[in-house]
Design a binder for these strands. Structure first.
Length: 280
DNA sequence: GTTTAATGGGTAT
DNA sequence: TACCCCTTAAACT
């Protein structure tokens, strides 16, 4: 679920459902009871994201900071008619519920869920690298990422997932974008050409908004073409969960037919094609 | 019924 | 590198 596209999509959904209103904020599970009490009954001004960090600005300078981590989920759903009176029943471990008579947003399993001040927001965002889902400017500059990559002996695979280098990319986008540009994931950062970095960044800028629109990571050109065509027609298609290399170890590469390889690197599953992703 | 894996990341060793 | 946290659904026995 959670790479950067998920958080930007969530920010939009929270804005649409609750922006400018005063929803009920609670912690059915109890573990966020104090924070929920601080926010309950105040205006939810705006939700926004940088990389995988999600922020919800409330009145009085209070901001809710949420990081979904690996397993966190946050669904924003309409309240079905039969549950308008009492609100939908709480199922499972709901750390935080934001709700009114029209919408309910239940947060489960987040790595972080806390009320922070503006200083802390700046500190958190300041540690993040540039985010391909935000406009490039002085504060969101892919060149800063390349400067780090170009003098690093760490692998490109590791650097792309380091949120202080590049914000929002997770394991799927990283594996797939490297495949798309035939780059070996274990190349050291300092061997990555500037032109290759520019291709990676531009490709993420191209791909990730489709993740925000559809809620699904799309990295195959034919899936993207079908989805974009359907979108043009005003349809909201179900996106097939298909990738080039992610979780396809032992299977043939969709491009060259060589066997997709797999290795655990820094505790994460890394996939790449042994045939068409060169080390050079 | 129990174990594992998952699109993350912080902290200790 | 290891270990810890968070939750749930799928994959085991």
């Amino acid at each position: 679920m959670p790479e950067g596209h998920t958080l930007h999509r969530l920010a939009g959904a929270l804005d649409t459902a609750f922006g400018g209103t005063t929803p009920d904020v609670s912690s059915p599970q109890g573990r966020f009871a104090e924070g929920a009490a601080l926010l309950d009954g105040t205006v939810l001004e705006q939700a926004w994201a940088h990389g995988k960090l999600l922020f919800v600005d409330f009145a009085d300078g209070r901001t809710l900071y949420v990081h979904l981590g690996l397993i966190g989920k946050w669904f924003v759903l309409p309240v079905p008619p039969e549950h308008v009176e009492l609100g939908p029943p709480v199922l499972g471990e709901v750390r935080l519920r934001i709700a009114d008579e029209r919408h309910v947003a239940d947060l489960r399993g987040p790595m972080a869920c806390q009320v922070v001040d503006q200083e802390e927001v700046l500190r958190l965002v300041g540690r993040q690298g540039p985010d391909p889902l935000q406009p490039v400017d002085e504060r969101n500059d892919p060149d800063t990422a390349y400067r780090t990559i170009a003098r690093s002996g760490r692998t490109v695979a590791e650097l792309l997932m380091d949120q202080t280098v590049l914000a929002g990319v997770g394991n799927i986008y990283r594996c797939e974008v490297l495949w798309r540009h035939r780059l070996h994931p274990l190349k050291p950062g300092r061997s990555l050409k500037r032109s290759s970095w520019q291709l990676i960044w531009d490709d993420l800028v191209h791909l990730m908004p489709w993740g925000v629109r559809t809620g699904s990571i799309i990295t195959l050109d034919d899936v993207l073409a079908d989805t974009a065509a359907a979108w043009e027609r005003g349809e909201r298609p179900q996106v097939p969960r298909e990738f080039a290399v992610y979780q396809r170890d032992g299977m043939p590469c969709l491009r060259c037919g060589a066997t997709v390889r797999h290795k655990v690197v820094a505790g994460r599953n890394l996939f790449w094609c042994g045939g068409c992703q060169r080390r050079t």
